[in-house]
Amino acid sequence: MESHLVGVVGVKPLYRVNEAGQLADKIFQIWVEAPHVARHALAGQFLVIRIDEHGERIPLTVSAVSGDLVRIIFMAVGKTTHQLSTLKAGDLIRDVAGPLGRPSEIGKHGTCVVVGGGAGIASCPIIARAARDAGNRVIGIIGARNAGYLILEDEMREACDDLLIATDDGSRGYHGFAADVLKGVIAERKVDCVWIIGPAIMMKVTSEVTRPKGIRTFVSLNPIMVDGTGMCGSCRVRVGGETKFACVDGPEFDAHQVDFDLLMQRQRTYFDEEKASLERYHEHLCRCGEGGHHG
């Protein structure tokens, strides 16, 4: 338990960045030392990170585990993820909590398809691997705006029996959406279970593909969270007409029961504040002329 008590400030442990790098346009990865998360995390779970004393708590999927290290992969969209993208090996992160949420419902389903869109691909290899280990045949589909946004292709190829690729502009693989590729797959063969992970709108559209055939489909919801442990209700979503807390009842839910429009509405709650915060951060960076991640 002491292994993560590196660089004690006051008496609080800090979490060391072991490796950091860029994977694609705007998409970054960090391997961070967090044994309490690494030792127990399963596919589908997430962690909450707070970079420093002034930071916000943000949820990110545990995308891989190796010994005491966990990997997070994120897209730089706002202040916190931009700041996170400036971290380098050896830097310290104030807080890493987890593993949070329910693990994916991995069973022996038969043939599974794991569909990832954009930064959502981050969650896919760990699920694909778990599904295959459980004796399923696993087909992967990864999609992005263009070839420059595609990530984890090799890892997915290794984790899946088959891997299909789609880009919106045709710069790589199939020219079109992951949803179209999925449509083709389920037309060709019997599919028993599907995971779809990506932006809310992509999950909404793609899960319509499996609805007519009643194929069991999971999506991983990404509402705004604070604690991630069921204490605030910020993450509430509607599933099958019932209110659920995504951080403890999910984040994975039955796609065909989810109210995606509500999810997207609630994601916009702090639109103005997020914009102001990012602008302030960029201004600050310009003035300081460096990473300056201590606010």
């Binding site: 002034h54 916000e56 604070v226 204490m231 910020s234 504040e273």
Partner: peptide, 26 residues
């Protein structure tokens, strides 16, 4: 909001001092 969320944002996350602290509250 639940009171818990509102109070947590302010007390624990210091949303009263946004944007100096990163967590917002309406």
């Amino acid at each position: 909001y639940s009171a818990n969320e509102f109070l947590t944002r302010v007390n624990l996350m210091h949303a009263d001092r946004f944007p100096e602290y990163d967590t917002p509250v309406r």
